[in-house]
Each structure stands twice: as C-alpha cells, then as structure tokens.
Write a protein that binds this DNA or RNA. Structure first.
Lengths: 155, 155, 155, 155
DNA sequence: TTTT
DNA sequence: TTTT
C-alpha cells in the first residue's frame, strides 16, 4: 500500500567500494552527486550539489564494482532507507541511503568524467585491505529485508 | 545535467506542522510512512516501515497544512536534500528531507486514516504557539535555492 | 543504456479483463483514467481525462483480475510499449500500452469508486466466454521479451 | 487526484523539428529510442527498441531545437497524451505522445551519438520550409490545456 | 469507461 | 507517528 522510489542521474564522487558479507553477498557503496543550478539574490547563477549515499547488493553490486568509477555518469533507481548506528563516541547517528535496484551507465563512450580509469573494460580490483570506506559508517544492526544478508555487513 | 527525484505514496504519521518564515513564506513539514512487506528467515511475513521527513514550501505548504492530517494517504513528488545542523550539545548532525514539489491526496472519501479529522474541509488552524515540531531540528544555515526564504526558518 | 518508465495513479474505467494464453500465462488488461485540471481561455476550470491501456502479466495479472474493479484507484509502475496490428479492414494500426510491473491498490477502504463490487474480497470470476475485450485489438505478432509467452495472446 | 508521469532515458533518432504556432508558441518534436535487452527462446541476447514521440513546448522547445540532435542521449520527464486525427483517407487515427516538461542532456562531452553535429554550441537553424515532419501527423483539433496554443499546430 |  |  505504499511506494518509496528514487530516481537519480548524477556522477560518482569516487570509485565505488565493493565488499562482501561473511555469507558472501556482494555490497557496493558509492556517493553520487546531483547538482542544481539556481539564481542567488544578486541574480548570479549558483550551483548546489547534493551527495547521495548509494548502496547496491549482490549482482548489481558486482556490476557497479566492476564498471563504475569516479566521475562516471549513472542512472539509479531505488528506494530511500534510513538506518541508525552508534559512532565511536557512542552517539546514535542516522544515515539515509539509496538502496539501488537498477543502474544504467550513461554517456557511454567518452563521458568518463575525471576518473582514473576511462576504458570500458572492468576496473581492476583493488585489494580488500585498502578498501575501507571513510564515508559510510559501519552497519551494526543491519536488516535489509528483501535480501536477508544474515550476517555482518562490511561497512 | 542531473536528476534528483523522489516519488512516495504513504500515510502521514501526524498532522502536518505549518509555520511561516519571518519573511512570510509558508513551510509545512510532516513525516510520511512507507512500508514494505517481506518474508523473514522463518518465512514469516514481516513489515518494515520507513519514515520520511517531508517539507513543502509556499502555496503547497498552505495546502498541506489545510487539507492533510494524520493517517491521510498522499502521493508526494520531490527531491532529496540533506542539511546539517548543530544539536544542543554542539554536535554536527545531518538530516535528510524530501522537498516536495507535488502532492496529491489519495483515496479521497473514506480513507481518512486514524486521524482526528475526517472531513474534506480544511483542518482547523491550531495556534502557532503549540505548533513547535519535536522531530525536525532548526535550520541554522538554510539555503533552498529555488525559494530563497532569506531568513530564519521556523523549525 | 536506456530507461522507459511510467508512473500512473488513476481509476479503472471498467473491471479488468483476465485471460490466459494457450501456454497458460495470465494476462490482465484494463483502462485507467488520469485527469488533469486546467483553466480554459475564459478562466473556467476544466478537466481533461487521459485513458491508458494497461497490461499486466502472470502473477500480477492474477492479482489485478482478482482485486481490481471499475472505479478502483491504483498506482501503476511500468513501461510504454507500442505494438501494431491489422484491423478488420486490413489497415495497420498502432496501439500504445503500459506494461505494468508493479501495482498498488490505493485508498483501501471506502474508496471503491462507482464499481459494482466494493468488498476487499476477490471479485467473482466471470465466465471466459463473456470476457472478450472490445477495446484492445488482438495481438497478432506478439513478443514481450521479458516474459516470452510463446504463443497466441487472447486479445 | 491522479498522476501521469513518464521518465525516459534514450537517444534521438533524428534531429528535432522546431516549429511555431501562428500565435508564436514554439513546438519541438522528436523521436526517442529506448532499448531493452532480453534473452530469446534460444537463450540468445536480443534487443528490442521502443520509439517514443516526444513533444516539447515553448522555452523547452527552443532549447530542444537548439541543443539536441540525432544520436544525443537525453533524460525526459513528462506525461503521456493520446490525440486523434484523421489521415488522408479520412480514417481516424490515434497517436500517443510524451509531452515533455523536463529535459536533461546526458553524457555531455563526447557522447554525441551518430549525429551530424557534435559541438556543444547551438545547432544551426534550418529553414522552416525543409522542416516538415514525416513522422507525426498534423494536429487537427488540438487542445493542450496547460499551454493553450489557441491556433493551428504546425505538425 | 473512472474519479474529484 | 501512519497504514494494511
């Protein structure tokens, strides 16, 4: 009896992070920028950027991990989800994420943004150790119903 | 060069809050529940509810303030926006909101939820003094480009 | 590399038609009205109604056939598809349809429109013989890739 | 009380046609391809292309006429509209169009498709005489409420 | 053919 | 805090 749908077209701020749950489920996370032009009070054209935390699971995570990179323009369809976690100081914090269920790469050839990779081939996998995200806090009590990754989430 | 679009169909958890900026711009805020059914590991049907902070401005705010109420089912179209504020303890916090640019009341007659008002007529205006939101922190440094409410935001 | 998405909220003009392909795949069709208010040149408020041909397949078709009825308000998500057929006079005609992949009933209790059934229980199944649609022409050369109903479509 | 929304990401099949109503309102039309991959019965990957007739009005029409061209990838948001007309033989025909209310060019630099123009600058205006669309029939009885172009539509 |  |  309800709808929770998000549609984004934007560019990745960094290469995506691809990790695996202990049970082996792939999870990709990346931040996506959308920007909006507007006129300020002086009539000057300004730009405001919104950063979205995007999460993809399983097969879609693998695809994101392989083919997306910093600067890439993508279409994302998903839902909004807010989860809470405790930071190092024990404060409860909330983070809102977009759980992607569809992704389309846009501007195929030549629109590879400012990223370090520009080829259409899969990005090279970086070692897991250097793969720690700074931006997204760890899931402490995770429960994403549709996918049931019944164990710790690696971010 | 980007798209930031949200589509929600859900029910209001409470009556909306309607306030005015010093410059006279109307602002309505309300929380909207969307829920999702899923099967847990035991195969039991479960429900997970997501709460969305919705903000409407100007004419749309007036309409929301007048016609929406607790339990009402609505269609919302808007964009995702995250702003930061400092809580009482001086900690920087972030809140993600849906800035509505379209609202449609659904299920008109008879689907008035569990709210206190059930008529199609405007809800009675409550005194501004009792109108303080608990749920949404004050805007300290607000800048919503399209609307430019150039002064303090009352929540 | 592309997106084809439709989101509709409207009311059924008639009860849906539920049929089965020779291979046993369920197909539901119904027309859905969306309407728009506008001011004419004289400043009079007018209404313009748009009728959408909606098609649902398989499990979603069964649900539509069982629970939807004339007047019911629904949310539909799907894609636009145009197919051609030859009418009785041998003229090539085109019909644009919305192939639904998600449906949500709205305004649950009390918003059952002007239909003949108002209960939440499944609508009674009518005999297949009386089930011929007037409104949607027969598929002659049908190919809906995702579903591959590899045989004649009964409308 | 209803929603009629379309979201497309696709590529233009030709340069857009830009015309003006007698009253001076700009109208741009173009066809947009979206395509979908699927597996056929033999498990072979196939592609199915859907062509959408897109119409834009006024300022958006001018922008489309100036900056879009064959092959360009765009994001379109709008509504579905079906209108009827009589063809040369006096047969009533129906055409379904997407009336755009938002357009975003995608894949900015380098993703200019197979078109004849590849620069970011405005396309050169072609003489109106050579501007007759083959693909979209003339409006005979046109009434687009929000815009009220109160005269003949040039296609 | 629906609904407000 | 809603709704089914």
């Amino acid at each position: 009896m309800s709808v929770n749908k998000v549609i984004l077209v934007g560019n990745l701020g960094k290469d995506p992070e691809l990790r695996y749950t202990p049970a082996g489920a792939a999870v990709a996370t990346f931040s996506l920028a959308t920007s909006e032009r507007y006129k300020d009070k002086e009539g000057q054209s300004q730009e405001k950027t919104e950063w979205h935390n995007v999460v993809a699971w399983r097969q879609l995570a693998e695809i994101c991990g392989k083919y997306l990179h910093k600067g890439k323009q993508v279409y994302i369809e998903g839902k909004i989800q807010t989860r809470s976690y405790d930071d190092r100081d024990g404060n409860k914090k909330y983070i809102t994420e977009i759980v992607a269920d569809q992704m389309q790469m846009l501007g195929s050839k030549g629109n590879e943004g400012g990223g370090s990779q520009r080829q259409a081939e899969p990005r090279q996998q970086r070692p897991a150790a250097s793969n720690q995200s700074q931006s997204t806090p760890a899931y402490e009590d995770f429960a994403d119903p549709p996918f049931n990754p019944d164990d710790d989430i690696p971010f």
